[in-house]
Design a protein around this nucleic acid. Structure first.
Lengths: 192, 192
DNA sequence: ATTATAACAAAGCATATGCTTAGATATATT
DNA sequence: AATATATCTAAGCATATGCTTTGTTATAAT
């Protein structure tokens, strides 16, 4: 009955996500998206309606992406405090290689986006709740493993750790490595 | 020998700072600046060269502004731990009034700006070093007052607190009040 | 009073922006 | 084979963007 798409919507969406991640929302033009996604503007608009919506979809995709590529170790069954420590220390890794840390797409967007943009705000919150859930599981596993005190208030401490991660996502973009290491060290000391 | 300026450069700069603070760098147009600063584009360009430079100047102005209007209590001679606690709790105040917290101009910009923009990066770092200096003084005062252990490593803990503040600047824009309070509570517990 | 200079307002410039339209092409159904 | 429909490319649209130019006005020195 009709012609087939020459592209996979999910694949081009992931490419769009990377463009937003690299440049931020406002600094990403539809021409840039067109080029990186490898499809025509017509196709972008017919698949994703408009730039704002494509951004929302990219935020959702980002959650999927980090799930597989960034938080994999922390999401493994039984992940506990030492895994969290290993993970947090990755915020300092790029300093050795000399590369610039581009930050977390969601944290960057939290800074950039107008707080009155409710559609985006909801999606940002979804992400943070996903992270918090992960942290709760890690803390729960850590109690079970005897890493931390059994009466640790998991909800309170997962909120704290979420805050620490938000701070690191900002700090790691501009602060020297030793400052980042201090933040991690003191943050984890609350479990001792 | 010539006509006088009808505006005060420093006053219109402060207005420009607020426009950037409210909208972010990319989402601020020269037309918006023109309107809010109350001067013509010609005057903007003759006083501040270009938009990028006006932004840099606005970042410097911001430091001056928060010095007077945001951190005044923490910069008072002898400010110590309880003052820091009072200050941090302000991150939750806007929740009661229902207003949206627009964040810290510098933290927002850290998220938005391309890390490769060295001119901006330097200015962001200047700001963070200003905050860190303030925190060091507060910690030093706190030791002197006997609030915290005398062998507290001021440098390490000021780095930690800077990280906490960066986290709160992000978190307070989107997270519920109780989560912010948890972050503050646990953060300050490291001094007990 | 004349002149030189700098600030002013407003229009203008080239280009970039988000998004749409027009026409060609491919494919599944009849 | 003919038709209908969804996809493709590429050009186009109105407006917004950062920045400049033009011509006028005010002021200080001559």
């Amino acid at each position: 009955m009709s012609r087939h798409k020459l592209y996979n919507s999910d694949e081009v969406l992931e490419k769009a996500m990377h463009v937003f991640w690299n440049n931020g929302y406002e600094n990403t033009s539809v021409r840039m998206l067109e080029k990186e996604m490898g499809i025509n503007q017509f196709s972008i608009y017919s698949s994703f309606s408009n730039k704002h919506n494509l951004f929302i979809e990219s935020l959702k995709k980002y959650r999927e992406y980090v799930n597989k590529n960034v938080y994999a170790d922390l999401l493994k069954p039984g992940a506990r405090l030492k895994d969290l420590e290993l993970f947090l220390n990755r915020f300092t890794e790029h300093k050795k290689t000399g590369k610039k840390y581009k930050g977390c797409l969601v944290v960057n967007s939290t800074g950039e986006i107008n707080p009155a943009d409710d559609v985006v705000s909801v999606e940002l919150n979804n992400y943070y709740m996903f992270i918090k859930g992960m942290l709760k599981t890690v803390l729960s596993n850590s109690i079970e493993a005897g890493d931390i005190s059994a009466d640790t208030d998991i909800d309170v401490y997962s909120n704290f750790l979420l805050g620490v991660m938000q701070g690191l996502s900002v700090g790691a973009k501009v602060l020297p490595g030793n400052q980042i290491r201090d933040i991690i060290k003191v943050s984890l000391s609350v479990f001792k």
